[in-house]
Design a protein around this nucleic acid. Structure first.
Length: 487
RNA sequence: CGGGCUGUGGCGCAGCUUGGUUAGCGCGCUUGACUGGGGGUCAAGAGGUCGCCGGUUCAAAUCCGGCCAGCCCGACCA
């Protein structure tokens, strides 16, 4: 993900002309670059209420594709979609001690409705454990009702002090899964299944973002969970972003909400639970993991448009050839867009498509066309090739099939280049700011976490030395802490 | 909530110290022409109660007071 990798010498002088309109480069000012990409690629806008977000069509289509990838995997894991209310009785939030404590500072509470003050204020959901468990208590009676596997796609609202589009907004879209199981082992296995088969798979295979998996330290754990599993990825500035989490809730909520079932012997038992979520933050990750100094780079699987065919300029033969290619690619099953806006300069249009991250551009111009050729450009590598008309479909297929994997390889190489392995706290503190540091957890511990926090460093997750997940009952002392700065 | 800063066309800013005629600039937008293989050129336009309220003054974007809003840095979080 260095500049030299993103702009091979072989390309025909790709330009960032002058100062006008060009993006701030990532090394110059990464947060500013991020904001500019969000704006210029027309992904989102700030809402009129502080911290709120308008997701624009280009951004929303990406979300719909992420959603589809995750939803299909959730269903494969046996959960079903449902919908629970936005408003939660305030009293529900108080039922689980840690949960209240964790969420209290983030709550939005509605005190008025219908022009008068409510007798009992209602909370706007920051997450839905409480309402859903209220119903689980009602729905679950017998071991035959288990496991109960429910998911919902919805918005949630949390008070945020430092909003940033996609990464941290007051209202965001997500999916939250909630399950109840007969025993601890089943709950644990399910939490892990979601972590790896849903989140890791969708994020790596569809979004092309390599992740580290592991569990959170007590300090970073979800409010009310006994164990929080996480997928962590490295962004283009070396900082970490949590991409999806899966919690083992033990029996905390079951006891607080009285979720009990009769087992085969007739004995009354509390269920064991999980909850798990992934949000529109993934779009932020996509931008920051793959974006380059020319804008967004989308893996074809998530791109609203996979191929744009553009007429270099007004010309009968050009437009005819472009339309023919557009039709051919469309029939081939690719999402194609024909850009025949000859009232806008060619340079302007190519830059726009590049900002938006469309994986392939097919440029049809009179010069190439005279020899029966067009120019095909792969966005992620910014490589151009001259291709005969008859070979365009193949060239497009080749790029569409390889781009996602190549983006992932590039992100992985970047992460590895920015990951250090050390043996002590002192070294971890020293190496910590450029990327990830792997350090034995028994050298860190809770006091170490405080020292790290002083430098804005946190333990992103704990995992085995080989990157594997801790087994049931495996003590944290034997594990490695992945340390980094985070969003 | 503690510390630093900013409010001027859609966006980004200058002007304010040292009040003074029609408040400028870049980008964007509109129209036209020439263009056209990486944000092209030229010309003509549209668009602003200078955050709000009050005060000083012959005169306030500019000086004074108050209020409001937003940004950045610290403690929370997907």
């Amino acid at each position: 993900m260095t500049d030299s990798a993103a702009t091979p010498e072989s390309t025909r002088t790709p330009t960032r002309p002058g100062t006008k309109g060009a993006l701030t480069t990532r090394v110059e000012d990464f947060p500013r670059w991020y904001q500019e990409v969000v704006a210029r690629a027309e992904l989102a806008d700030n809402g009129p209420v502080r911290g709120t977000m308008v997701i624009r069509p280009w951004g929303y289509e990406i979300w719909e594709r992420l959603q589809a990838a995750i939803d299909e995997r959730i269903k494969a894991a046996g959960a079903h979609n449902a919908y629970f209310p936005l408003f939660i009785p305030e009293a529900f939030m108080r039922l689980e001690a840690e949960h209240v404590e964790g969420f209290d500072p983030e709550l939005w509470v509605v005190t008025h409705g219908g022009g008068r003050q409510l007798d009992e204020p209602v909370v706007v959901r920051p997450t839905s454990e409480t309402v859903i468990n209220h119903f689980f208590a009602k729905w679950i009676q017998s071991y035959r009702d288990l496991p109960m596997l429910v998911n919902q796609w919805c918005n949630v609202v949390r008070w945020e002090l430092r909003p940033r589009l996609f990464l941290r907004t007051t209202e965001f879209l997500w999916q939250e899964g909630h399950t109840a199981h007969a025993d601890e082992a089943d709950a644990r296995a399910y939490a892990l299944r979601i972590l790896t088969d849903v989140y890791r798979d969708a994020i790596e295979q569809v979004a092309g973002i390599p992740v580290l998996v592991g569990h959170k330290t007590a300090r970073e754990r979800f409010a009310g969970a006994v164990r929080t599993w996480t997928c962590e990825a490295m962004m283009g500035d070396g900082k970490a972003l949590q991409m999806g989490t899966s919690h083992e809730l033990g029996q905390n909520f079951a006891k607080a909400f009285g979720i009990q079932y009769s087992d085969a012997t007739g004995a009354l038992r509390h269920v064991w639970q999980t909850s798990w979520g992934a949000s529109t933050r993934l779009i932020g990750a996509l931008i920051m993991a793959h974006g380059d100094d020319f804008g967004l780079r989308l893996p074809p699987a998530l791109a609203p448009v996979e191929v744009v065919v553009l007429c270099v300029r007004e010309d009968e033969a050009v437009c005819k050839a472009a339309s023919a290619l557009f039709e051919e690619l469309r029939r081939g099953g690719r999402r194609v867009h024909l850009d025949a806006r000859t009232d806008t300069g060619f340079g302007r249009r190519t830059v726009d498509w590049e900002l938006k991250g469309v994986p392939v551009r097919v440029e049809v111009g009179p010069r190439d066309l005279a020899d029966g050729n067009v120019t095909v450009v792969a966005r992620h590598l910014r490589t151009k090739e001259t291709v005969p008309l008859a070979g365009v479909a193949d060239a497009v297929e080749r790029i569409c099939r390889s781009a996602g994997r190549e983006l992932r390889d590039e992100a992985l190489a970047f992460r590895e280049a920015r990951t250090a392995t050390v043996g002590s706290m002192a070294e971890a503190l020293e190496a910590g700011t450029a990327g990830f540091v792997r350090v034995p957890w028994n050298k860190v511990g809770e006091p170490g976490e405080l020292q790290l926090a002083a430098q804005a460093l946190t333990v992103r997750c704990l995992q085995r030395g080989d990157g594997g997940l801790a087994a049931a009952g495996e003590p944290d002392d034997a594990l490695v802490a992945v340390v980094g700065r985070s969003y």
